[in-house]
Design a protein around this nucleic acid. Structure first.
Lengths: 152, 152
DNA sequence: TATAAACAGGATAATTTTATCCGAAATAAC
DNA sequence: GTTATTTCGGATAAAATTATCCTGTTTATA
């Protein structure tokens, strides 16, 4: 049981989704459309699984896809700065940021709180605030300039 | 893919472990030893799975178990206030609070950060601080006094 | 129009997490 | 000592998540 891989913030799917979006954004600045294969290689993720996640992001209008030869994924340049981490997380993992109880109670609010309701509310709100105020542009520029990294 | 149950803080195992510990503590104040069955019912968790988690907590010396008739689980009264949430989480989910990268990079530190390293570090540190500074005593007393709840 | 490149999406498999079952060992009470 | 109660621990099953495979469709280009 012990020594697991836990205390997630996000699912693998969500991790891949965030990294893929950043990679696509960083290329869209140079009007470079990127293929699934290139994305998966660049963010070190399984190709076919990444495909599913990208499809999901396309359906949620977060990224655009172009089929056929010379196709691939891209994000409209002017739109990049408006994409928040929260949108990606919501598209992939759902909206549990906003209502999930830290201890899994079905009902957990001020009137009927779980034992750690207040403590968790603080952390959750900070996480939520961070996700809603971090946009892909900042992150993509750091990747382009080599300040941060998408793999290893 | 969408509309899942995500954005965990903890695994189910960990949720059950925390709730069980609080329930045991709140009964140990009255020198009441509680059985697996009673615990599972009180925290609304699957009996056999809860048994595994309790075994884990026993092995980590967080709770005590007594076999046989009139047996059950308990926590030494004077010890209750020293049990932090962080101990329970570590016992069950491992020590990923301290080193896991939010985007799953194998290496993620100041010198080689993932794109959201700084943002996550803040949240992680606050979560860590909260877990290390919340003890079972406070939580158990709130349960006893009906201020907070372990199920529904 | 034929071909190659590339995304879409259904089916299936592997892995992990969650959950159940059952026999063994311990202990209190009769 | 027998019985009932209760934890322990191994084996197994179910469900969810992660990952792969394969076929179809779209599109640029020769």
């Amino acid at each position: 049981m012990s020594s697991n891989y836990y205390l997630y913030m996000f699912s693998k799917a969500c991790e891949y989704g965030i990294k893929a979006s950043i990679y696509i954004a960083s290329n869209s600045y140079e009007n470079k459309r990127v293929s699934l294969k290139e994305i998966a290689k660049s963010i070190d993720s399984p190709v076919a699984f990444t495909a599913k996640i990208l499809q999901d992001l396309v359906r949620h209008n977060i990224i655009n896809s172009v089929k056929g030869a010379h196709g691939g994924f891209e994000i409209e340049k002017d739109y990049i700065k408006y994409i928040k981490l929260s949108q990606i997380v919501e598209a992939i993992d759902g909206d549990q940021i906003y209502n999930g109880c830290g201890l899994g109670l079905h009902i957990c609010d001020e009137a009927h709180p779980c034992p750690v309701h207040d403590q968790f509310k603080t952390i959750r709100n900070e996480l939520k605030h961070m996700l809603e105020n971090t946009n892909i542009e900042q992150l993509a520029l750091d990747i382009k300039s080599g300040v941060s990294f998408l793999k290893v």
